[in-house]
Amino acid sequence: MAMKVGSQTFTFPSRPVLTGWATVSGPKEGQGPAGAYFDKIFPDLTMQQKSFEKAEQLMMITAVEIALEKGGVAKDAVDVFVAGDLLNQIIISGYSALKVGAPYLGIYGACSSFCEGLFLGGLLVDGGGAQYVVAATSSHNCTAERQFRYPTEYGAQLPPWAQHTVTGAAAVVVAARGSGPVLELATVGKVMDLGIKDPYNMGAAMAPAAADTIFTHLADTGRQPGDYDLIVTGDLGRVGRELLVELALRQGHDLSANYRDCGEIIYSREQTENAGASGCACSALVTLGLLFNQNYRRILVVATGALHSPTSCQQGDSIPAIAHAVSIEFPKGGQ
C-alpha cells in the first residue's frame, strides 16, 4: 500500500515494475538524438490519416499496442488505462481508450501527464489491486499549434524563448510483478503561478512549479540531487532550465552536475528552434527512449505542464503550471 512521506511524496513499497514501454514519434523527433531508440517513427506528420488529430490517435494507439506486446500483456488483461493529451476534452485519449477497450481514467496535466499517469499507475498497482495499468500520453505539433496558437501554415516569427511542440506518443505498462525498471516513489506537485503571462514563455511559467516539486521532493525524502544519476525536467527548454538552476541555487541546491531538460535533449543542436521542445510526448520520448537505454541506477523524472487555456491567455490571465516527479530505479543498472 502506497505510503505518504513528508508533505507531497508517496512511496510504493510493493515496487511496481515497468514491464513494457513504447515510443512512437514524428519525423523530426526520429532524426533527433533519441530517434535511434524509438519503436516506431512515422515518416510524415499526417501519417496517411485524414487529419492531424487522427494521426495523433494513431500514434497513441500504436504506442499502447507495442508497449503491451513488449510487456507480454493482452489488451483484455489491462485493469486500467490512464491517458492524457493536450487537446480539448483530451479527445485523443478518449478515442484511444475506446480502441484499447480497458477501463479508462482520462487525465489532464498538460505536458506533466506522463508523470501523472505513472504516479496513478503506481498507486493503482501498489494499493488498488490492479495487476496491469497502462499509462499513455501524446502530443502532435500540428494539433497543438492550431489549438493553442496559429494555423500550421500561418507565417509567424517566433520569439527566441518559444518552444516547438513534439510530435510523438508513448505508453508504459505498470505491472505488479515482472522484471524491469521500478517505480520507487513519486512527488505530486502543487499548482504554481508567479504571474508569467506570455504563452510563448512557458519555460519561465513552469520553472517555479518544477523548482517547488524538486525542493519538496528532496525535503520529503531527505535526499540530495546527487542521490540521482540524473534529474530531468519535462519541457522547460533553455530559458526555463536556466531559471530552474538559478532558483535552485538560491535555495542552496546545486543542480549543475546532473540536471538536464528533455526539451533540450530531444532535438539535435541543428534541429533546435528557439528555446527547445515542449509537449506531452517530450518527457515521455526522452525518458523511455533515451534514458531507459543508459546505464543509470536511479533517475528522477519531473514532467512539467502549463495549465493555461487559449481563452485564459487571451483574457490576460497568467499561466498556472504544475510538475510531478517520479523516481525510477533500474535494478539491473539500466536495460
Partner: peptide, 18 residues
C-alpha cells in the same frame, strides 16, 4: 525565496529572456 515573490521572479525571468 523567489517562489514566494512573484514580482522578483518576473524580474529574473525578464533578465533570462534571450
Amino acid at each position: 525565496n523567489l517562489l514566494r515573490d512573484p514580482k522578483a521572479y518576473q524580474e529574473l525571468a525578464e533578465q533570462k529572456k534571450p
